[in-house]
């Protein structure tokens, strides 16, 4: 993972609430290897009709170069499928802005350098309206936790742990290896005191 602190790009609105992970990537695409690219699956059944033709009234279809997605509350609710994040990333999205996010989605996003930026309902409504047909030059600043359009600067919320991870591009596995001794000691202590925690098959 590579750290980042600033991003400027085109924002586009997807003005719905509860955009769940089954919409973000329908289950039938999930047996595809990641190397094939997941961008084409993003919001597939919302973006395309049953013959595979794109719907013209979905702004995302007209702004394939967007890197900031603005949406309604509870974005990414539902399943733990990280493929929902892969679909966004492979499409080119770096930041999703919404009033709230599904917890597992948000954590998956951060693990892939995608910023889930939480804004107030008022700011979300403003951003949805300015980006309803795409908006160039939207800046996201992770250092100052702001989103700027040409005439307004807004704050966003993010768990401080996640902010640090995004800024530093931390990989959790590397971090954990720094605690190897503590983990080993914890395990020893479990074996001494709570052996029942380790499963043994009977019968």
């Amino acid at each position: 993972m590579i750290g980042w602190s600033n991003h400027t790009g085109k924002a586009v609105a997807f003005d719905r609430e509860n955009v769940d992970t089954d919409q973000l990537i329908p289950a039938r695409f999930m047996s595809t290897p990641r190397a094939d690219g997941y961008g084409k699956f993003l919001l597939h059944d919302v973006r395309f009709d049953s013959d595979g033709s794109p719907y013209g009234d979905i702004a995302l279809n007209n702004h394939l170069d967007a890197s900031i997605l603005v949406s309604g509350k509870n974005f990414g609710s539902g399943s733990s499928r990280e493929a929902a994040v892969y679909a966004l990333i492979d499409f080119g999205i770096r930041v999703v802005v919404a009033p709230s996010f599904g917890d597992i989605f948000a954590s998956n996003a951060v693990n892939n350098s995608l910023l889930p930026a939480r804004v107030s309902a008022t700011d979300a409504a403003f951003l949805l309206s300015v980006s309803s047909d795409g908006a160039e030059g939207i800046s996201v600043d992770l250092d100052h936790m702001t989103i700027s359009t040409k005439d307004r600067v807004m704050n966003f919320d993010l768990d401080p742990v996640w902010r640090k991870k995004l800024l530093n591009g931390w990989d959790d596995i590397d971090l954990t290896l720094n605690h190897q001794d503590e983990v080993a000691a914890y395990r020893e202590q479990l074996l001494d005191n709570q052996k029942w925690r380790f499963p043994v098959a009977t019968g």
Partner: peptide, 30 residues
């Protein structure tokens, strides 16, 4: 899998995780 919350019915701390976290648990058990 997000419905890992099911196991909480037994008084276990059970929660769903994403693929990056699965890789982390596999390799560190934490």
């Amino acid at each position: 899998d997000s419905h890992t919350s099911t196991h909480g019915a037994f008084g276990a701390l059970a929660f769903g995780i994403g693929a990056t976290e699965v890789a982390h648990v596999l390799s560190t058990q934490t």
